[in-house]
């Protein structure tokens, strides 16, 4: 995955059973962002792998004032990369 300067990780262990997972996102390299992030803390949130999209979450984070609108794409990409990795691991853990 490309180094976007925004780190996204699982906030709790994923057993592959629930469609909703908990993620944690924080800025590792503020220089990679166009706007100044509002807070330098880690933002924890839930994400439904089946119903939601990373773009929705990124937009809500911008609307909640965490990130500048110019950084919505990079935030969405960071979430998308981590979600893809989680789904890939799930497929390996329990193939259909």
């Amino acid at each position: 995955a490309e180094d976007t300067g925004v780190r996204v990780e699982l906030a709790e262990e994923d057993h592959g059973r629930k469609s909703t997972i908990a993620l944690r996102l924080w800025v590792e390299d503020p220089k990679k962002l166009k706007g100044k992030p509002k807070d330098n803390g880690a933002i924890e949130f839930t994400f439904d792998l089946e119903k939601e999209s990373p773009d929705d979450v990124a937009q809500e984070m911008v609307e909640s004032g965490f990130f500048h609108e110019l950084d919505m794409k990079i935030v969405a990409k960071s979430i998308r990369d981590r979600v893809a990795l989680i789904q890939w691991r799930r497929e390996r853990m329990c193939p259909e």
């Binding site: 590792e28 803390g41 949130f45 965490f66």
Partner: peptide, 27 residues
């Protein structure tokens, strides 16, 4: 600082907590 919470109008809850020093990248 203590955790803060922001609830978006769409209903998602964002919980902000300090990033552990070990997770911050050296400048």
């Amino acid at each position: 600082s203590a955790n803060t919470q922001v609830v978006h109008s769409a209903g998602r809850r964002f919980i902000v907590s300090p990033v552990p020093e070990s997770r911050l990248r050296e400048p």
